[in-house]
Amino acid sequence: MTALAKVPCSIVTGFLGAGKTTLVRNILQNAQGRRLAVIVNEFGDVGIDGEILKGCGVESCSEDRIVELSNGCICCTVADDFVPALEGLLRLAEPPEHILIETSGLALPKPLVQAFNWPAIASRVTVDGVIAVVDGAAVAAGRFADDPEALAAQRADDASVDHENPLEEVYEDQLLCADLIVLNKTDLMTAAELEQVASDIKAAVPRVVKVVETTGGQLDAKVLLGLGAAAETDLAARPSHHDNEAEHDHDDFDTFIVDIPALDAPDKLLDRIRSAADDHDILRIKGFAEVKGKPMRLLIQGVGSRLQHQFDRPWRPDESRQGRLVVIGQKGLDREAIAQAIGSV
C-alpha cells in the first residue's frame, strides 16, 4: 500500500491543561461529514477527557469511535494498548477516514510516532502530523523556564544537586516532535508576552515549524488535518531528550481522585480548588460535579489556580451523578490535605 492509501492519524500532544481535549472536541464538531475516530490517553483512573469528547454528540464520531486508554502512558503501552486500539478502529464496518490521538500531558510523542513503524500497522496507518498544543499564558508565566542565576547558585553551593527539570524536558520534547504548534489561550496574554513566547518556541525548535495562535482551541480542521507529514519516516528530524533511553517513566508525578458531593452552587467549590492549587502546587485538575437542581453536569478544568467551568451536557439516566475530580501534580502531593480541602462540604 502507498502512503496515500493509509489512514492518516494526527497526534495531539501538549502539556497538562494546554487545551488538547478542547482542540479535539472542536475538530469533531466541525468535521463536515468526515468519519473521525479518537484514541484518548488518560493519566489516572477516571476517563475525564474521554467523557468530555463523548459529550460532543456529533454523528461523525459516535461513542464507539472514541477509545480510552487508561492503563498508563500511551508511549509506554504500545504493544498492549495502542496497537490493538488502532486495529479495533480499522476493523469497524465503516472505518474512520482520519484518527485523532490525544496523548496525556505527560507523554513523550516521539515513541508514539515510532510505533507507527510496527509491522502490524505500518502498512495501514501513517502520522499525518504531530500537533503540539501550548498553554501560552502558562509559558509566559515562566512555568517551564529555568532561572539561570538560581541554577548557577545551586551548582556553586552543592555539586550533587540534580538540576534536571522533568517538566521542562516533557515540554521541549513535545515541541521538538511537532509538525504544527498551536499557541493556545492567547486571550490571556499581553502582546509582549505573545511575541516573546512565540519567539522562544521558534528558537527551541531547530527546524521550520509553523506556530498558529488561537484562543479556546478554535481552529479550522483544514489547518490541523491533512498535513501529510508521514512523521514516522522523519524521526531523525525530531530530536528528544530521551533518544538514548530504552524507556522512560513518570515517577516524578502523582495523580489521584477526589470525590465531590452534590453542590448547591459552584462558587464555593471553585474557591476551594483555587486555594488548594495555590497551597499545594497542583499542576492540573479536571472532572465533573453535580449542582443540585440542574439537569446538566458541571465540567471543571484547571491549570494551577486558573479554572474554567461550564455545564457541558445533561446527565444520562443510567449514569451515577457522583462528582469526581482528577488531581495531577509533581511527586509528594499531600493527598489527604488536598482531598479534605477540595472535597469538604
Rank of each mutant, 00 (worst) to 15 (best):
T2E: 13
A3K: 07
P8F: 03
C9L: 03
S10H: 00
I11T: 04
V12W: 09
V12N: 04
G14A: 07
L16R: 05
L16K: 10
L16A: 04
G17T: 08
G19F: 10
K20F: 06
T22F: 08
V24N: 03
V24C: 05
N30V: 01
G33I: 08
G33P: 07
L36Q: 10
V38Y: 10
V46D: 06
I48E: 06
G50Q: 00
E51H: 11
I52M: 12
L53G: 09
G55D: 13
C56S: 15
G57Q: 01
E59F: 02
S60V: 04
E63H: 07
I66D: 03
E68K: 03
C73N: 01
C76W: 00
L86M: 14
L89M: 06
L90R: 10
A93M: 10
I101M: 01
L108E: 15
K110Q: 10
P111N: 08
L112F: 02
F116R: 05
N117A: 11
A122C: 09
V125R: 08
V125L: 12
T126Y: 07
V130M: 07
I131N: 01
G136I: 08
V139Q: 10
A141W: 00
F144G: 02
A145Q: 12
D146I: 05
L151T: 14
D157G: 13
D157W: 05
D158S: 11
S160Y: 05
H163M: 15
E164G: 15
P166S: 12
E169L: 13
Y171G: 01
A178W: 09
I181N: 04
I181C: 10
V182N: 06
D187Y: 01
L188Q: 14
A191W: 01
A191F: 00
E193M: 00
L194C: 09
Q196F: 00
Q196L: 10
A198Y: 00
A198S: 15
A198C: 12
S199R: 13
A203S: 11
R207F: 10
V208P: 07
V212P: 05
T215S: 15
G217K: 06
Q218A: 15
L219H: 10
D220V: 00
A229Q: 15
A236D: 14
P239S: 02
S240Q: 09
H242I: 03
N244P: 07
E245W: 12
H248M: 06
F253Q: 06
T255M: 04
V258F: 03
P261M: 00
L263Y: 05
A265F: 01
P266G: 01
K268Q: 13
R274I: 05
D279S: 14
H280L: 09
L283R: 12
G287C: 10
F288Y: 15
A289W: 08
E290D: 15
Q301A: 13
Q301P: 09
S305A: 15
S305C: 01
R306F: 04
L307T: 04
H309I: 00
Q310R: 15
D312W: 06
D312T: 09
E319Y: 02
E319C: 02
R321Q: 14
Q322E: 13
G323N: 06
G329Q: 07
R335N: 07
E336Y: 01
